[in-house]
Design a protein around this nucleic acid. Structure first.
Lengths: 173, 173
DNA sequence: ATAAAAATTGGACAGCGCTCATTTTCCATC
DNA sequence: GATGGAAAATGAGCGCTGTCCAATTTTTAT
C-alpha cells in the first residue's frame, strides 16, 4: 500500500510478496475490503503513536504540535494515509470493532487536548469542537496532498490550518 | 458515475449505455483517466451554476449561502461530487486545460465573496483565505459524506462548518 | 462511381476480486 | 514410527477490468 497506493493495491500482489497464494489471503481476510481495513487499522496505530510522541515532547503550544503531527504523518506516509479516506465500505457494512477502536483512540487524543484548552464553561462542547477542528485540518492536509492547493497556487497548507485553528480556538469564550 | 460511484465506474459500461463499443470510448477520450476528468469537469460546471444561483438569491448572509451551496450540491450528488476527489491523476500528469478552467471558475466565486467581506486592509490575503475556508468546509462536508462524522457521533457537519467560517472571518481584522 | 478520410469495431492481452474442490501440512493419539 | 482427523494452503476457473490496434464500416468530396 505504501509503495503503490490504494488505487493500485491488490490482494494478488500482496499474496505474491508474502509468498502465499491468493486463496490464503481470502481465507484469512475474507475480502479485499477487510484486507484494506486491516491495513488502515495499522495506519491508525502508527499515526496515534506519532501524535502521542509529539504531544509528550511538546512545549506550551500543543495545538501546533497536533497540527504538525497531522501533516507530518500524512506527508511522510502519503499512500497509507490517503488509503484511509480513499477506501469506502459498501453501504451498511459495519466497521470492524478494532478499526473503530484504533480510530477512536486517535481522535480521543485530540479531544483531550481541546478539552484542556477550552474554558471550563464550554467543556461540554469539546468533543464536537475537536471533531470540527480535525475536519478543518484534514481539509487542508488533503488539499495539500491531492494537488488541489497546488492547482490553486497555495503553498502553505500547514500554516493556513494552524492559523485557522488559532482563530477558531480564540473565538471560544 | 452518478449511479454507481467512482469505484464501480467503468469505460465498458459507459460504452454499453451509450450504444458504442469500448474502442470508440478510447478513441475519443484516450484513457479512463481522461474520461473521468471529462465527467468531473462537467461536475464543476453544474456545481458552479448552483453556487451562482444561490448567491444571486442570497440575502445579506452570503457566507451561509456559500456553505449551504457546498453541502447541498455534495449531498444531492454524492457520487459525482466524491468522484472529483476520489480520482487521482498519475504523478506529473497535467490537468486538462478546461478542467482547470472550470475548477478555477468555481473557486473564483468564493474568492470574490471573501474579498468583499474582508476589511480593505486585508484585501490582498483574500485569495489565500478563500482557499483555506474552502478546505475547511470541504473537510466537514467530506467527513459528513464518507461516514467519518457518523463514526464519531457528529450529526451537524453543516452547522459546524458555518460556525467555524464565522469564527474565522470574525477574526480577520 | 470512386477514392480518400474519418469513425467505429471487437478480439486479444494481462491483470483484477473472488470461489471452492483439492491437496498439503500439522499434530495428538496410539 | 504409524495413523487419522483437523487445520492450513493451494491454484484453476469465472466474469470482470483497462488498453491496444488491425480490420472494417461509414462519411465526405470529387
Amino acid at each position: 500500500m505504501a509503495e503503490v497506493g490504494f488505487a493500485r493495491f491488490s490482494a494478488r500482489e500482496v499474496a505474491k510478496r508474502i509468498g502465499y497464494s491468493i486463496g490464503t489471503i481470502y481465507n484469512v481476510f475474507g475480502s479485499l475490503d477487510r484486507l484494506v481495513l486491516a491495513v488502515n487499522s495499522r495506519t491508525f496505530v502508527a499515526w496515534a503513536a506519532l501524535v502521542r510522541a509529539r504531544l509528550d515532547a511538546a512545549g506550551a503550544d500543543r495545538v501546533a504540535a497536533l497540527v504538525d503531527a497531522y501533516f507530518d504523518f500524512a506527508e511522510a506516509n502519503p499512500n497509507v494515509w490517503m488509503a484511509i479516506y480513499d477506501h469506502r465500505l459498501p453501504p451498511n457494512a459495519p466497521f470492524p470493532e478494532d478499526y473503530f477502536r484504533q480510530r477512536a483512540e486517535l481522535t480521543g487524543l485530540v479531544e483531550a487536548e481541546i478539552a484542556a484548552i477550552l474554558p471550563p464553561a464550554q467543556a461540554d462542547g469539546a468533543a464536537a469542537l475537536a471533531r470540527s477542528l480535525v475536519a478543518m485540518v484534514h481539509g487542508h492536509c488533503l488539499f495539500a496532498l491531492n494537488g488541489t492547493f497546488a492547482l490553486l497556487g497555495e503553498t502553505d497548507a500547514r500554516g493556513a490550518a494552524l492559523a485557522r485553528a488559532r482563530e477558531i480556538l480564540g473565538s471560544q469564550h
